[in-house]
Design a protein around this nucleic acid. Sequence first.
DNA 1: TCTGGGGTCCTAGGACCC
DNA 2: TCTGGGGTCCTAGGACCC
Length: 391
Amino acid sequence: MKKYRIIFHIDLNAFFASCEEAVNPNLKNKPIGIGKNSDRGILTTANYVARKYGVTSAMNVYEAKKRCPQLLVVPPNFALYQEKSEQFFTVLRSYTDMVEPASIDEGYLDMTDVLEGKHPLDVAKEIQDRLNNDYDLPVSIGIAPNRFLAKMASDMKKPLGITVLRKRDVQEKLWPLPIEAMYGIGKKTVPNLKLIGINTIGDLATFKDIQRLGKFLGNQAVGFKDKAWGNASSVVDPSKAEEVQSVGNSKTFEGFLHDYDAMLKALSALTESVVRRLDKKELSAKSLAVQVRFNDFTNRSKHYSFEQHTGDFDEFMEAVEYLFESLYEDKAVHLLGVSTSNLEKREVLFRQLSIFEAKEPLEKQEHIDKLLKSINQNYDKALLKKGIKNK
DNA sequence: TCTGGGGTCCTAGGACCC
DNA sequence: TCTGGGGTCCTAGGACCC
């Protein structure tokens, strides 16, 4: 008999707002939104009190205040959210090592081998209570045999819901949902699917013409159809947490930028912030991309590959200036972004460096110089020396 | 209501190799 | 002479998610 895995998807409810309420209990029972308090700003999150008035995340502040005049707009405090997120994952990891963070406020757990005969619902309730009582973090939990169903399930009851979605429940509980509720189907795809008569997840499941479906969903057509039947991967990969793919910063300019020098200055500030974050994560990057959004909302991006991994501001800026020069058009700029990818832990680069030991002295020195430049000076300098000595 | 900032993954087309 | 196919890697751009 095939054994189903038991996957939990745990989702923090109105996470940023919950964090603010946790440190400032006065805010509880009041409508709050997280965002910059200006008419043109948008809310990243609204708590459930505010949602009753029709305030949603991604809504702009002006509109939100129209719907809920007494709304309190709280500026975001990302350091706090980071800290609470770490607490959240620490609690999850106290139940199983098989935890895969999906974002700052949600994670997948493979609970199959740790239940020890306990009922999944009871364990879920325990996790939920603990997070809510000890950390002021309300969560919704979805329990299912795979990731997709668990994710859909955690969405069905919010806040503080626990929902079990078995494969045999799919027709009754999943199929009636509108197609836009399906994870992975976004606002560009929805109109196309409706055009061919797919309005619900059930419609997708029973759609016969896979060729035609492929026109809109590409290679993922079969995968989406499988999911609509409740078939999806149940692999929870804890190592994914460490494998950051990119580190970048971007900024939208409310008044637009018109001046080339101002743009470069902004890019320099963004690059500085990227360097700081790479330092903190002890990562170096081999690729860098610059993104520009013009006032007509067209996006352009360009990409540069370094000869070797680096975390050096000057090297980054050289690339940024080079890329931006070729992206620049004589148009006002709405957004600028700098993003690094192809990342590697500096520690790993050091290990590669000691392998390099065998090569020519001159070449080696150049290599070391470059690396040194690109790597945190003090702490890493010591490490480097040690690495060479040990060789 | 014309709107943030952090990401991930996918795809099409070109370069290049065998 | 004017013609194959497959594979991989890279880049730009887009869709999607929280």
